[in-house]
Nucleic acid binder design. Structure first.
Lengths: 232, 232
DNA sequence: ACCGATATTATGTCTAGACATAAATGTGGG
DNA sequence: CCCACATTTATGTCTAGACATAATATCGGT
């Protein structure tokens, strides 16, 4: 067990009072000088504790007025967008990647992915225990990742390789639903009428496009999960 | 323009060197005592700046060794799961909620939503400019929110009301794809063969279930978005 | 009662130290 | 050469103040 510092003890004391409902949204928590007296420590210490709660969004600080329990407002959650290879391995299933096609990206590809020419296009399927879990269509900017041109993506999936290769600094996801085309349905071993979860991700490094990927998950075989505990 | 403190200037100076690529993952950033000398300030100030970068996951601190630029590893993003009423209003479209049914929740409802009896069940549709944007099936625990029983959900959507009423402390989302039943397709004015984005959310307050909601979005009319800039 | 200037006060930022802790490094003995 | 031990050093936590800032509360005059 790790040693708890005074700062985190103060923080968790207050947090417990909020989560239990003893302190409700809008209520004022004790002033810093009151906490200083209660814990017999310096103001910097209680200040850091309360500051952490404020950055976590649990309380709101107002000069002269004091510090108040925040009203929950924005509904946001931390979404896990896992590396599929690791995800499947973590579930104890056998991972397999099969390449469908590896070629130069066409002009229309580049437009949908917002990637500059020249770029590589890689299509393939992620399997878990032999069952197709996701169809992946990826574009990789060759000006950002020249090494990609000489990689054997028939053997390894491009996602994990890219993550090691190019640290990205910015990413955007769009998550929606789509029906597969007949070819996509065949690759996923599913009926054309079935719904698919569609995840599209754009990734940049310091403003320069690195990769675009569109993943299609057969509905029911996979879902994304997002947990949210304010301030945790 | 807001006044920048010395602490955030130190922080953004280092962050800029990381994002520009001048400092690459694995590189050591200057020691605290070097930064103290460079900026001519107290160690507490540079320590807070570097600490903030560490909490943001941009750098990793190791005793005796120093502070190093972190390798990006987990792929996670902040997902916005907006209140639909506010989202539609923010896009400049006209919001309308229509109630389909309001009744006591059945035993099978309670099981899927993991809500204790007694509970209220509310079905309805969110419209944007008259077009159905989402079908919503919601359960509200009456032991957690007794007031819900006497609310006129024919007029207002239950989501926004609940958020004001009961501050939640924990939430879990599952995001997947599904085909609508014929009734659901009719309510959404879409073909049965079309894919839908399905968002299911469980909400607790201090461990006690508050509400469960399942929302069905016709594919193409809506998608969730998630942005991620490490440390922002 | 209303409005504006002033005093008060809680938080925001910072200094200049102290001591604790853990990990890398150097040192000597086997 | 390798292992055990002591040393060094950067970060971790904390103290006891100082001054700045912004918002509330009070008081006085109209």
């Amino acid at each position: 067990m790790s040693k708890t510092t005074l700062e985190q003890r103060i923080r968790s004391d207050i947090e417990a009072r909020i989560r239990s409902g003893a302190l409700r949204p809008g209520d004022r928590i004790p002033f810093e000088h009151e906490l200083v007296a209660a814990y017999g420590c310096a103001r910097a210490t209680v200040s850091k504790a309360v500051e952490a709660l404020a950055k976590a969004g649990l309380v709101e600080r107002r000069r002269k007025a004091g510090t108040f329990v925040a009203h929950p407002h924005v509904q946001s959650a931390v979404l896990a967008v896992p590396d599929l290879e690791k995800l499947i391995a973590a579930r104890g299933e056998a991972y397999r990647w099969t390449l469908i096609e590896q070629c130069r990206a066409s002009a229309s590809d580049l437009e949908t992915g917002d990637i500059p020419s020249p770029a590589l296009r890689i299509d393939g399927v992620h399997h878990a225990d032999g069952v197709p879990l996701a169809l992946e269509m990826r574009l990789i900017s060759l000006s950002a990742v020249p090494l990609a041109a000489s990689q054997p993506f028939g053997e390894r999936s491009p996602g994990a390789w890219l993550l090691e290769q190019v640290p990205w600094t910015e990413a955007r996801h769009e998550i929606g639903a789509a029906n597969p085309t007949p070819e996509e349905a065949a690759a996923l071993d599913m009926p054309t009428s079935g719904a698919c979860l569609e995840v599209r991700r754009w990734t940049w490094q310091s403003g320069a496009p690195v990769t675009y990927v569109r993943q299609l998950f057969p509905g029911g075989r996979y879902h994304l999960m997002a947990e949210f505990t304010p301030g945790a």
